[in-house]
Design a protein around this nucleic acid. Sequence first.
RNA 1: GGGGGCGUAGCUCAGUUGGUUAGAGCGCUGGCCUGUCACGCCAGAGGCCGCGGGUUCGAGUCCCGUCGCUCCCGCCA
Length: 599
Amino acid sequence: MSADAPSLSPNAYRDTWSGQVLGDRVGDRVRLSGWVHRRRDHGGLIFIDLRDRTGIVQLVFNPDESGGSHELGHRLRSEYVISVTGKVVNREPETVNPDLPTGEFEVHVSEAGVLAESDTPPFGIEDYQGEAGEETRLKHRYLDLRREPMREAIELRHRLTTAMRSFLDGEGFLEIETPILTRSTPEGARDFLVPSRLQRGSFYALPQSPQLFKQLLMVSGFERYFQIARCFRDEDLRADRQPDFTQLDIEMSFVDGEDVIALNERLIGHLLAGMGIEIDTPFPRMAYDEAVGRFGSDKPDTRYGYEITDLTECLRGTEFKAFGGVIESGGAVRGINFGQRDLSRAQLDGLIDDAKELGAKGLVWAFREGDGWRAPIAKFLSADELAALNAAMEAEEGDLMLVAADAPAKVASILGGLRTRLAERWDLIPEGVNSLTWIVDWPLFEWVEEEERWNALHHPFTAPAGDLDPENPGDTRAQAYDLVWNGVELGGGSIRINRPEVQSAVFQVLGISAEESAERFGFLLEALHYGAPPHGGIAYGVDRFAALLAGVDSIRDVIAFPKTASGGDPLTGAPAPVDEIQLREAGINLRKPPKPGTS
RNA sequence: GGGGGCGUAGCUCAGUUGGUUAGAGCGCUGGCCUGUCACGCCAGAGGCCGCGGGUUCGAGUCCCGUCGCUCCCGCCA
């Protein structure tokens, strides 16, 4: 059942919520309005389950006492909108429905009217019928949202954002809106573009985040800002990614990273407490390098073990070329001991396919057998090597080990991906455990091999920790922190650069020329020349947060009107072609005509 | 852009090695029913087997293409 019923001012439609037809109302004459959830028509007696936002109550149409209303009861169908007046009575003990909060009571109807009829819905609103296909649900989302699990998810999301607002308000943060129509600034993702009619040939971009605006607000002296902000990124979708999504965006002035982390631990503690989850503070912290090394991920799921072991030194100089060659060229060999696993040969070979999907060239599986291995490649390794491997991975008799070799970063991501995949498949994740971890000590830059240039790992406005060494950008750490909850990146932030000369130095490393940076975000650089306070903040993925709390796999289940994997909305038909007139006004010629007949 | 899964009645699904008239449950429509609550009983309607092409005497089933949904990789600072 949902949260407490909202307050109610009696009016012509209702003086009582369906879910509030309880003991204290017995004997009262009540007015109720809502939807026909279900009808049980006995010819004489007719039972109607009346549903509104607060719950369900049973209405009784009795020919002996309902008079003319009884005939109307016959005509009612699922999802008709009705308004009734009747008397609240206790049910006979043998007719109580223990599954319903209002199950000890019912309303004997004296007057009833249909406010709106309904076509037969394409799928059942009742839970027992199971879920319709997602496309059907989205096409009739307004009906899907009537279903209790959806209503609860949306209500949960509301409670979450309300708690965010009240906490931050209590901490002196101001909620400030920033533009949706803004300027394309090169952040990570592809921009959504909006043509300007008044300035033909120019485009707005939808914000990928309010990053630059919140920094400007710090320069403006607001000191503490937040926004539950819609963000837009034109990239492919996933279960946890929508092209428009919501961030809780926070920024504060005259703070260092510890201040931001402390505030956010209180925020998260407050939010989770409101959801009935107690969590210890401070949250543990893990360095980026450690996370990648032990878990193969910058968002490690620390609820379970099966950590990665580096085996490179065990195998240095090995005769086995698949490993030896990789090591000689600077690569790494690493493995995970998955313990006792009873798998068929086909299942073991299937693991190789998993690894290949994750980008591996191959995968070695092996079971410890005596001092050696039972494995297809066992014969290529010496007894000493096998013993060293068993020791390194602390393998016991019969343990399954999975080993991969590649460039260090690659092998980390392969094994990290395998670890999370298999944890789910083999049910290795403990129930009811919540693990919140700060990932800290991030590199400021990463080297992009294909493009032979440095890239900002977070974003180019992240402050370096200490001095920036332009000769060795890879050694510079960032004042950045990500919050990871059960292997999901819940949020991330940093202390920002507040001095223009530092910002220029970062741009230089990134290969952004003075002209280019002036052209693209000169407005920020200029603002930094007018006394920007030290500042930093964080942004959380509100959709992911709500999905985790609701216990659903897809953020679509906590978004009222989400989009499908191809970015469409089956309800509205968006995106859709537009009139030639609209295109002309926007000053746009399509390079190719739209595909005919889709939509 | 690439890989996997799915597409049959309004909904959820079954459909054998290619073989008569494509099934079930729920829902829907009509009838009966005064204590049901996933009401019950009786009767009935409802199908472009996603779409297009091919193979075949014959295709829901096999092949090719295509569209849609979904999961993943790439992408997402």
